[in-house]
Amino acid sequence: MQQEMTIKHDNLEVQGIWGQATNPIEGAAPLVIFAGVKGEDANDAAEAQYLNDAGIQTFAFEADSFEAAKKDLPAVFEELRQKDQVASEYIVLAGFGQGGRAAALAASRLGKSVSGIFLMAPVFMPSDLLELKKYQGVAYVLAGSLDGEAPMSNLSLAAKTLPRGELLEIRDAKHAYRLQDVERAAMLLRTLVMTALN
């Protein structure tokens, strides 16, 4: 079940969609927080539904800009990790394009309290690489083999820069994911949450 939710933290208010795990594992369940940026085709709803059906909770929001997403993520993280139904040791930050960039940089600041990051076609700037080195958790970087906006070579460098980074290629994928790319990304994200974090 998905429903609108407002996160309030300090002076921030973030509107998003909370996805309840359909068949949660006993007690608290893992959580994936999706950061989106307006104007990008992130497909978070389809991925969130897949995760909810697999017993993983989700929260997805869309910020007006990269800077807003980067600012909102720590507030959303801090509020949601306090919920009784959230397994606070199993929280993953995820995002597509600029949302992925925001997730990676927010995780670098939040440190090891973020269990993992899942970055779909993130569009990094060269100056981001120093920040990426700080994140010590598990990091999956998805790269489309035909992506012109987030080229494989750039994402390979980002994955190598992340201490526990792994580059995953989606063959024949461009920057705008097709349905099969979204499904594959959702399966890989589920794998990250259910296996790599243990």
Score class of each variant (00 low, 15 high):
160 K>E: 12
178 R>W: 03
61 F>W: 07
174 K>I: 05
46 A>W: 07
2 Q>N: 12
26 E>P: 05
97 G>Y: 11
113 S>D: 09
186 A>E: 05
163 P>V: 11
174 K>Q: 09
12 L>C: 02
185 A>Y: 00
153 S>G: 09
115 S>M: 04
104 A>R: 04
102 A>E: 11
117 I>A: 02
9 H>L: 09
8 K>D: 00
115 S>L: 04
34 F>C: 07
190 R>G: 06
119 L>Y: 00
85 Q>H: 14
71 K>R: 06
25 I>D: 12
18 W>Q: 09
120 M>I: 12
24 P>A: 14
34 F>Y: 13
130 L>T: 14
107 A>L: 07
111 G>E: 03
57 Q>N: 15
123 V>L: 05
91 I>R: 11
52 N>G: 06
35 A>I: 13
47 E>V: 15
72 D>Q: 04
10 D>W: 04
39 G>H: 04
148 G>S: 14
128 D>C: 08
63 A>E: 03
57 Q>H: 15
70 K>A: 09
11 N>K: 07
82 Q>A: 05
175 H>V: 08
125 M>P: 02
195 T>Y: 13
20 Q>T: 15
113 S>P: 02
68 A>D: 14
180 Q>R: 02
8 K>P: 02
160 K>F: 02
39 G>Y: 14
45 A>K: 07
86 V>P: 12
25 I>H: 00
127 S>C: 03
34 F>G: 04
198 N>Q: 09
18 W>A: 11
57 Q>A: 15
80 L>P: 07
133 K>G: 11
74 P>K: 03
